[in-house]
Computed example of a mutant assay.
Amino acid sequence: MIASQIDDLQLAHPVMEDAWVTPLAGLGALREQEPMARHTTLGVGGPARWFFRPADRAALSSAVVLCPEDIPILPLGRGSNMLVPDFGINALVVDLSELNALHVEGCLVHAEAGVRMSRLARQCAEHGLSGCEFMATVPGDVGGGVAMNAGCFSQQVSDVLTHIEVMLRSGEVIEIDAETLDMGYRHTVLPAQSLVINACFELHPDHPDQIRERMRTMRSRRSATQPLAQPNCGSVFKNPEGDHAARLIEAAGLKGFAIGGARISAQHANFIVNEGEASSADIVALIDRAQRVVKEKFEIELETEVRMVGEWL
């Protein structure tokens, strides 16, 4: 969880706020009280105290140094696996979409944090490199994919990741080998409050047409089984060992169940969709209902895959 101190920080440190926020405006796009509903694939979430899109890596380094230590820094990713409270978050949300350089050296592919994983998959196919086809169906960026060890179709980022670069709160950039990240199912251990800024993947040669065909097959399977036409955050729950969250939720009789403007998808029970007017509270209520009913019926505790950022009351 990202700690939040709603409004208290502003009242306690008004001079400090001007001292560090004002210089950020020259380093990229900076907005105050930015609605996070504009930046999450679920289309929900209250305002971020500050929202910053650095122009480049140097700007990001300056920003993290300027940001007071008691203000959390939250990387946005593409907002595809994020649930923000309706009352918002008191944090510096950082959009790294401008850090989007990608280059290939033999079988090694270097991608900055803001590179979309779907773009990475396409570029690798163009170069005849196989191993990240599954990323073509993941609606996120490289930074978020590394932080979550994103995956599908029995593959995950850790299968092909060799090392990453992260930026610490001090602005220092360090390189970390993938084998030391303790990467597991939708889990990566990163230094506290660090930001993934670059990742290196080792792939293997294959014919571009065969790679593209595998990508097309994966996309078709996703389109046929998941509610991609409606706002969602991807899989809400992690799959319990030896089972599937969707099967358990459906067996519990909750497929299609709705609270407010949010609904457990009738197409895939491990997805919650925003039918147009959902609030974060509606979605959390559905999460709580699914966890409670599955626990009552099957003695299995569903663990969330979606990141619930901020302070939830």
Rank of each mutant, 00 (worst) to 15 (best):
M1A: 09
S4L: 08
S4A: 08
Q5A: 08
Q5E: 12
I6P: 09
D7R: 14
D8K: 10
A12L: 09
P14D: 07
M16F: 07
M16L: 14
E17I: 05
D18V: 05
D18L: 12
L24W: 08
A29Y: 05
E32R: 15
Q33L: 12
E34C: 06
E34H: 07
E34L: 04
P35Y: 07
T41Q: 12
G43D: 02
G45K: 00
F51A: 01
F51L: 06
F52D: 02
R53P: 11
P54H: 03
P54W: 00
A59V: 00
A59R: 00
S61A: 14
S62D: 08
A63S: 03
V64H: 01
L66P: 15
C67F: 02
E69R: 13
G77P: 03
G79A: 07
G79F: 03
M82P: 03
V84F: 07
D86P: 04
F87G: 08
I89N: 05
V93R: 01
V94F: 02
L99P: 13
N100A: 12
A101L: 09
A101N: 06
E105W: 10
G106T: 10
V109S: 01
V109C: 01
E112R: 04
A113S: 12
S118V: 06
A121T: 01
R122N: 07
C124A: 13
A125D: 02
H127W: 13
G128H: 08
E133A: 14
E133G: 14
T137C: 06
V138S: 04
M148H: 03
N149Q: 02
N149D: 07
C152P: 06
Q155S: 11
Q156M: 04
D159Y: 11
T162F: 14
T162S: 15
I164H: 00
V166P: 00
L168C: 14
R169L: 08
S170Q: 12
E172K: 15
I174G: 12
I174L: 15
A178V: 01
E179Y: 13
T180S: 15
M183E: 07
G184V: 04
Y185I: 01
L190I: 03
A192T: 15
A199M: 07
F201S: 02
L203M: 08
H204T: 09
H207Q: 13
E213C: 13
R216F: 10
M218T: 03
S220W: 09
R221E: 11
S223C: 10
A224R: 11
A229Q: 15
A229E: 15
A229R: 12
C233K: 01
V236P: 00
V236A: 00
F237T: 07
K238Y: 06
G242S: 06
D243R: 14
A246P: 09
R247P: 04
A252F: 12
K255L: 07
G256D: 07
F257D: 10
G260K: 05
A262D: 05
A266V: 12
N270M: 09
V273H: 04
V273T: 04
E275P: 00
I287H: 01
Q291P: 03
Q291R: 15
R292P: 08
K297P: 12
K297W: 11
K297G: 05
E299N: 14
E301T: 15
E301G: 13
T304A: 11
V306A: 14
R307D: 09
R307E: 11
G310P: 01
G310T: 01
L313E: 13
